[in-house]
Design a protein around this nucleic acid. Structure first.
Lengths: 343, 343
DNA sequence: CTGTTAGCGCGTTCAC
DNA sequence: GTGAACGCGCTAACAG
């Protein structure tokens, strides 16, 4: 049916080994023969069987990418960027979408990537057990989205600094009642929500503003959740005049809730997000910008570099920690508090 | 290093064949022995080598998914949904991101999925040559996003009907100068932009409205492009009082352009989108809703069904064509034209 | 520079 | 119900 290496060998009048060497650019084949083999292979539409090749060589030329919620802008963008780097380097990408707890559990117990991939890029932060499972694969590991983890190369941002700049901006505008819509640390054991919250508390403290627990609500990192969280904040006895949302999607949800309550942004309530979502500019959202695609690209590159290195067993796993730059982008959803307040 | 089937066999006191049969649920193994083997395998953390298994059996239990721009909401959402179906059925997903022409060309000339996948789901419409290349793989094929293609099971929507409902809505509100922001058919050989445009022209004709080419602009299916397209429309000698954008992302770009020109939506200009993007509700966008995740789910299911069928060679490839439902969702970006017009 | 010889780890006959 | 042999298609080590 489809051509095998022996077909090419016979047609080119050489042995299978020579075909193998020629097609993979290994030394030890005359240019003349190489060209001849390439022509024959091309004409026969020959591609080496991945299974056979990897069985014999031990290499798969495949990267496993583990992500939660690919449909979410952030992860989709990171995945997109990482995939481009991998495929340009000749690697295929095996995708595992671990949005649901069942999918996640299934993945980590069965570990379908075992013997299937040369490396794993995780877009979520595996918890300690999961990390250990991944380490047991014995391949290079990388991860984006904060939180150092043993054995992982991690590419992320300074969540504290980002959140601080956002909250400080609100303080500088004169706000005193500043709410926060956070993301549950929940099943994802990542430090991001924690770090951003600490930054929030710290800036408030520096400004001499007492912390009011009624001004914090969980938005679960979704638009819908952000809307509900904002609604809860508005139900407080003294609602906030400004809100820091830990993601742009929650910020947009909050804006929607505000509109429903006939409150204007920023006249009645200021809103700051985090991420610089593709559509943040469309809605004029002030936000903390981070290089999202950049993190995918960088993590992918670091992983490939480890694959290229001759794997000296004495060298420690290069637990690099790369910090990508962030910056506060001022748009139209923040302003000084209204003298009358949001009521 | 990692356990092989012979390790399990030895530890369980049986032969490798029995382990193979037991673990894959094939008949011919006593329940007692099966349980014993499962326990041993579990304890050893044994997973069959994908390469060896697929080399021996010919099946890969892997689906190739080909997509453009995974970072775009639409494709990310379809991919997310499809992946869930595949992985729940025990299939892995090999992802190919064909956003750039180079990546696309590389994929179709090298066809890295050959002998690597049991089926292919394409989220883009391959041109005739590309379709032929995919057919040469000899595996079931499916595709989302419009356009029938020989040998493909396609899951899509009625683009004409959707666009008609959007434009008719504007006509019914009393608009006569109705612009359209379209997506270039460009390198993607899909019928969607063409179908939607025909619907636009047809509704205008039915309403006795002369077609003005100055009211059409290309937005390339991006937010940015939509913004530029709207800007061009506004520069017309007689700008539109309403705009139909062929995607929500372009519609949001258009809204942004309108805001920059100090025009209000819908008081000065009405806007209708297409897709019902996750954030359409946030910005109050009137749009034609289509089941995006649903298309991914359905296409994945149809593919799996073909895989399960005993592949009777006499039966024609089931070139199903599934139409998913659409509906116009009225929100806050459409209203009757202002008596004074947008100037 | 090239051909020959062995496996890689598993699924699949076929015997028993 | 179970085990022994064979081969899937390729790459690696060894000759020459």
């Amino acid at each position: 049916m489809t051509a095998r290496i022996t077909d090419v060998a016979r047609a080119a009048g050489v042995s299978a080994s020579t075909v193998s060497r020629a097609l993979r650019g290994r030394p030890g084949v005359s240019e003349e023969v190489r060209a001849q083999i390439a022509a024959v292979a091309d004409q026969l539409g020959y591609t080496a069987s991945q299974s056979a090749s990897s069985l014999a060589s031990g290499r798969t030329y495949t990267i496993g990418v583990v992500a939660p919620y690919i449909g979410r802008w952030f992860f989709g963008t990171v995945l997109d960027a990482a995939e481009q780097v991998f495929s340009a380097a000749g690697y295929d990408v095996l995708l595992y979408n671990l949005g649901s707890p069942e999918a996640r559990k299934r993945f980590f117990t069965r570990l379908p990537v075992r013997k299937r991939v040369d490396a794993v890029l995780s877009l979520l932060i595996p918890d300690p057990d999961e990390s250990a499972a991944l380490r047991s694969l014995g391949v290079p590991l990388a991860s984006t989205v904060g939180g150092a983890r043993e054995g992982f190369t991690v590419v992320g941002i300074d969540d504290r600094a980002g959140a601080e700049s956002a909250v400080r901006h609100l303080v500088n505008l004169g706000h005193r009642r500043i709410g926060m819509i956070s993301g549950a640390s929940g099943p994802l054991h990542w430090t991001t929500p924690v770090d951003r919250r600490e930054a929030y508390l710290s800036v408030l403290a520096d400004a001499g503003i007492a912390h009011d627990p009624a001004l914090e609500a969980d938005g679960g990192y979704t638009v819908e959740g952000g809307e509900q969280a904002m609604t809860r904040l508005l139900a407080a006895s003294r609602p906030p005049t400004a809100v820091f949302a830990q993601s742009d999607e929650m910020a947009m949800g909050a804006m929607r809730a505000l509109r429903r309550h006939r409150l204007r942004v920023p006249e009645d309530v200021s809103v700051v997000g985090f991420d610089d979502h593709e559509l943040a500019e469309v809605v004029g959202l002030t936000t903390v910008a981070q290089p999202v695609a950049g993190q995918g690209t960088e993590a992918a590159r670091l992983l490939l570099r480890q694959l290229d290195e001759p794997a000296e067993p004495d060298a420690q796993p290069p637990a690099d920690k790369v910090r990508m730059p962030i910056r506060l982008v001022l748009r139209e959803t923040t302003a000084p508090p209204s003298p009358r307040g949001p009521q």
